[in-house]
Nucleic acid binder design. Structure first.
Length: 344
DNA sequence: GATGCCGGGCA
DNA sequence: TGCCCGGCATC
């Protein structure tokens, strides 16, 4: 059970990163904004401050409801995996992840504690291995942002939520406290830990999960003061996928925003192949590379970089073959595109 | 005006 | 994705 917190003993102290970065289901911005400042305990504030100074790694979120109900649990997790594998932007090694992946286990490995050690995969593995040995069951964790209090009794938890967060006099307090805590029992099956630890590269992207399209900002509960259980299960999907997508395409994004693209040079592979031959053979060999080059060179122009390459000195198909032999032009020249046969 | 090619439309 | 072309920049 690791959303923003850690294992049970320190959970109430560590959970609280949501106050700054609502990176997970347990810390939806809606709930964050609705919390009264006075209810924050000092130790939690301290924990939040500590976590603020550290980058929050992308984490795999899970819904609290899924913990109680294994059916949506499997549905969400499996769908996420399959979708990720077919997206093409980022790949998920299906071989390393059991189809019966339990989200409760994911929570075990996706804590901010792991995120705090993103640069130390070995440390993560150690922590994960350590956690996998400890079985944690029959506890109730408060899902209120920056709280994460763990109690062993549902009655106590309800009272905790009602008194501390919802307010004892609130009309909705008697209906909502069920939502703000979750029962969890974590037990990591053997062999899953290495598979999950191999996904640490998410964290290597360096940027914390930002609320983007499909992120927690789109939690259906945002339109209702009383979030429903169905919404929480959906949140799992909409939370997890953007986290991964935000990581892998990051390099692409960087290259697009980089002012350098105007000066982008083809990769060495292209240069070396250019020296081999000129003509259709070269074109065939470099068709893929040239397409990539064209694409990457064209992308800056779409991003307010009105770069237009000056006329090169190399003779193009038009000059070489002439208009009367247009059929001998390269495809790009025939299409009035940048010449591929005689690039500058 | 010729040339190169970006951007966009169409099937 | 392939194909085509308008339109613009450059020579």
């Amino acid at each position: 059970m690791l959303c923003c917190g850690q294992e049970a003993p320190n959970m109430t102290e560590i959970c609280g990163c949501s106050k700054i970065n609502p990176c997970c289901y347990y810390c939806p911005p809606l709930l964050l904004s609705s919390r009264s400042p006075g209810s924050v305990e000092m130790d939690e504030i301290m924990a939040a401050m500590v976590l603020t100074s550290m980058s929050c790694s992308p984490v795999v979120q899970s819904s609290p409801q899924s913990l109680n109900d294994p059916v949506p649990d499997m549905e969400c997790g499996g769908g996420e995996l399959s979708d990720s594998g077919s997206s093409g932007y980022w790949s998920w090694d299906h071989d390393n992840v059991s189809p019966a992946l339990s989200l409760s286990v994911i929570e075990m490995d996706s804590s901010p504690d792991d995120g705090l050690h993103t640069e130390l995969e070995q440390g993560v593995e150690l922590n994960v291995a350590k956690r996998s040995k400890s079985s944690f069951r029959g506890a109730y964790r408060c899902l209120w942002p920056s709280c994460g209090k763990v109690l062993t009794s549902s009655v106590r938890m309800k009272r905790h939520v009602r008194v501390l967060h919802l307010g004892s006099g609130s009309e909705q307090s008697h209906r909502e406290e069920d939502f703000y805590y979750t029962k969890f029992s974590c037990k990591a099956p053997p062999g899953l830990v290495p598979a999950l630890s191999s996904h640490v590269p998410w964290a290597s992207c360096g940027s914390p999960p930002r609320p983007g399209p499909g992120s927690c900002l789109q939690i259906p509960s945002s339109t209702s003061s009383s979030p429903s259980g169905s919404g929480s299960s959906r949140c799992l999907v909409c939370c997890c996928l953007p986290v991964f997508q935000a990581c892998t395409p990051l390099q692409v994004t960087v290259s697009c925003h980089n002012p350098a693209p105007c000066c982008w040079t083809p990769p060495p592979l292209t240069v070396s192949n250019q020296s081999v031959s000129i003509g259709e053979q070269w074109l065939q060999q470099n068709s893929a590379t040239n397409r990539l080059t064209t694409t990457r060179a064209a992308s800056p122009s779409r991003s307010h970089c009105s770069f237009r390459k000056g006329r090169g000195e190399a003779k193009k198909c038009r000059k070489v073959y002439g208009v009367e032999r247009k059929e001998q032009w390269c495809t790009a020249c025939r299409w009035k595109k940048a010449c591929q046969r005689f690039p500058d």
